[in-house]
C-alpha cells in the first residue's frame, strides 16, 4: 500500500523537475534584456551553429550511454578519430563521400573497442573508456608526429567543407539540420522505440532485463556503436567547421557532454536521462556561453560562469528533490 506523499514533497519535486526550464528561461530573458545583440537572428543562428550543434550531437550519444547505466570518457577519442580519418582522406585526394565514410568508420572502430570491452567483457564503462582516452591520446600524438594539426585550408577542399560546415538549407545551417535529424531519430529510438525500453531496463536493472529475455550484450553493443557514430558525425562537423583536424580537440566536448546529459536528467521527475533534457542542457550551456561573451565577460570568466551555472542547476534540482523525499 502506498503512503500519500506530503504535499510539500510533491511541490518540491515538481519544482526540481522544472528548475532547469526556469533557469533556462530566466537566463534567456536576462541576456535578451542586457545584451542588445543577443536576441538577433544572426546571433541565435551563431549560438546554434557554434555552441549547440556539435555539442548537441555528442551529448545525445552520451545520453544513450548514460541511460544504459554507463558513462563514456572516450567520446572525444571517437570524435577525433572521425576528424582524423576525414581530414587524412581528404588530403589523400579521396572523394568527399568516401572521406566522410572513412571518418565515420574510424569512429566506429573506437565504438567497436568499447563494444568488446564493455558489452562483451563487461568491464566498468568508466574505467574502460578512461583507458581508451589515454590510448587515444597516444595514438593521435603518434599519428600526427607529436600533435601537429592537419590543415585543410587548400582551396580544393573549400566546396566540400563549405557544404558541411557553412551552407544553408532554407536559411538553416547544415550542422543544425544534422542535429535536428539526429535528435529526432534519437528521440524516437530512445523514448518511443523498443531499443529505448531495453536500454532503459538495462540501465536501471541489468539482471531483471537479462531475465526478461533481453540480450544485454546486443543492446549494449548498439548503444556504444550509436554513441561512437554520433561522436564521429560531430567530428566531421567540427573538422568541416574549423577547416582542420586538431589532435585531441574532441576532449573539449567531453565535460560539456556529460554535463548536458546529467543536467538533462533534472528535467524529469524520475531523474532519467532523455534526449529532450539533454538538448535543453546543451542549449543552456550554449546560450550562457554566448550571452556571457556578449555582456563582456572574457573567455576565462565564461568558464567560471558556466561552472557556477551547472553547479547551481544541479544544487537546485538535487536539493529540492531531497527536500521532497524527507
Amino acid at each position: 500500500m502506498s503512503i500519500a506523499l506530503p504535499r510539500a514533497g510533491l511541490i518540491g519535486e515538481r519544482l526540481a523537475a522544472s528548475a532547469l526550464l526556469i533557469a533556462f528561461a530566466g537566463l534567456f530573458l536576462f541576456f535578451a534584456l542586457s545584451a542588445p545583440a543577443f536576441l538577433t537572428a544572426g546571433n541565435l543562428k551563431n549560438i546554434l551553429v557554434n555552441n549547440v550543434a556539435i555539442l548537441g550531437v555528442v551529448a545525445i550519444g552520451m545520453t544513450f550511454v548514460v541511460k544504459s547505466g554507463g558513462i563514456d570518457l572516450s567520446t572525444g577519442v571517437a570524435l577525433d578519430a572521425a576528424g582524423f580519418g576525414f581530414a587524412f582522406a581528404l588530403t589523400a585526394a579521396i572523394a568527399a563521400p568516401l572521406a566522410i565514410s572513412l571518418g565515420l568508420a574510424a569512429a566506429l572502430v573506437v565504438g567497436a573497442v568499447n563494444v568488446l570491452l564493455i558489452a562483451r567483457l563487461r568491464l566498468n564503462p568508466f574505467l574502460a573508456t578512461l583507458a581508451l582516452l589515454f590510448i587515444g591520446q597516444s595514438a593521435q600524438r603518434l599519428l600526427t608526429g607529436g600533435g601537429s594539426p592537419i590543415y585543410l585550408g587548400n582551396r580544393s577542399y573549400a566546396d566540400v567543407l563549405g557544404a558541411i560546415g557553412r551552407s544553408d538549407l532554407l536559411g538553416i545551417p547544415t550542422p543544425v539540420i544534422v542535429l535536428a535529424l539526429v535528435a529526432a531519430l534519437a528521440f524516437v529510438i530512445l523514448h518511443r522505440g523498443r531499443l529505448g525500453r531495453e536500454i532503459s531496463a538495462i540501465g536501471a536493472a541489468p539482471e531483471a532485463a537479462h531475465y526478461s529475455g533481453i540480450s544485454t550484450t546486443f543492446v549494449l553493443a548498439r548503444v556504444w556503436l550509436i554513441a561512437a557514430l554520433l561522436s564521429g558525425i560531430a567530428g566531421i562537423l567540427l573538422t568541416a567547421t574549423v577547416r582542420s583536424y586538431i589532435p585531441m580537440s574532441g576532449n573539449g566536448y567531453l565535460l560539456d557532454a556529460i554535463g548536458a546529459a546529467f543536467i538533462g536528467t533534472t528535467l524529469r521527475r524520475d531523474g532519467r536521462p532523455s534526449v529532450h533534457g539533454t538538448l535543453i542542457g546543451v542549449l543552456l550551456l550554449g546560450v550562457v556561453r554566448n550571452g556571457l561573451l556578449l555582456i563582456g565577460w572574457n573567455f576565462y570568466w565564461q568558464q567560471v560562469g558556466i561552472g557556477v551555472l551547472v553547479f547551481a542547476v544541479l544544487a537546485l534540482s538535487y536539493g529540492l528533490r531531497r527536500e521532497g523525499r524527507h
Binding site: G193, R194, A201, A204, A205, E207, A208, A209, Y211
Partner: peptide, 29 residues
C-alpha cells in the same frame, strides 16, 4: 528485486519488458 523487476520502473514498463516483441511494430512500442 534485482532479477525479477526493475524497481525504479513503473508496473506498466515492467510488464512491457516481457512482451516487447508482442507490443512493438517496426521497432516502436
Amino acid at each position: 528485486r534485482r532479477q525479477g523487476v526493475s524497481v525504479s520502473h513503473s508496473i506498466r514498463e515492467n510488464i512491457t519488458l516481457g512482451n516487447l516483441g508482442l507490443l512493438s511494430r517496426l521497432g516502436l512500442v
